[in-house]
C-alpha cells in the first residue's frame, strides 16, 4: 500500500472516476428539492383522502346490504301464499282435520275440467248415482 507507484495509479484512477461521474451529473442535472420533497404539510393536506375513501366504501357496503338483506332489526312479513299454506297445514294437522275444508282449501282445489265426455245420447248419471 505504501508503494508510491501504486498510490499514483490509484490517484489517476480516482481522478478518472471523479471526472466521469461529474460529467454524468452535469449531463443529468438535479431536480429541485421542492419537486422531490413530499413535505409534512403536503402530506397532512392529503390526509383526509384515505378517510374519505374509507367512509365512501363503508357507505356503499351498508347500502348494498340494506338493499339485499332488508333493514336490520325489522322482521319481514311472510308472503300471503306462505301464510295461507301455514294455516292450512295447521288445520290439516288437527284431530278433526276431516272437518277442515275451508275456503282456503277449496281455493287449492283443482280447476274444473272443461272437456265433454263421450257419452251416448240421453245417458245421464247424476253425481249421487255415480257415488253409489
Amino acid at each position: 500500500m505504501n508503494d508510491p507507484a501504486f498510490d499514483r495509479e490509484d490517484e489517476a484512477l480516482k481522478a478518472a472516476v471523479r471526472d466521469g461521474l461529474a460529467a454524468r451529473d452535469r449531463a443529468l442535472p438535479t431536480p429541485r428539492f421542492a419537486r422531490a420533497w413530499p413535505g409534512e404539510q403536503r402530506l397532512r393536506a392529503h390526509a383526509w383522502q384515505p378517510a374519505l375513501a374509507g367512509s365512501l366504501a363503508l357507505a356503499a357496503i351498508v347500502a348494498v346490504s340494506w338493499m339485499f338483506l332488508g333493514r336490520p332489526g325489522r322482521e319481514s312479513a311472510p308472503p300471503d301464499d306462505l301464510r295461507a299454506a301455514t294455516e292450512l297445514a295447521r288445520e290439516l294437522s288437527s284431530p278433526d282435520y276431516w272437518r277442515v275444508p275451508t275456503d282456503d282449501l277449496l281455493a287449492f282445489a283443482a280447476p274444473p275440467l272443461n272437456a265433454k265426455l263421450p257419452l251416448p245420447d240421453g245417458f245421464h248419471v247424476s253425481l249421487e248415482e255415480s257415488l253409489l
Partner: peptide, 18 residues
C-alpha cells in the same frame, strides 16, 4: 442511454467501464 452525447469521450469511456 446511460452516456449522453454531450459527454466528453474520456468520461463516457470511464462511465462505460464503471
Amino acid at each position: 442511454p446511460f452516456v449522453t452525447p454531450a459527454m466528453p469521450t474520456e468520461s463516457a469511456r470511464v462511465l462505460d467501464a464503471l
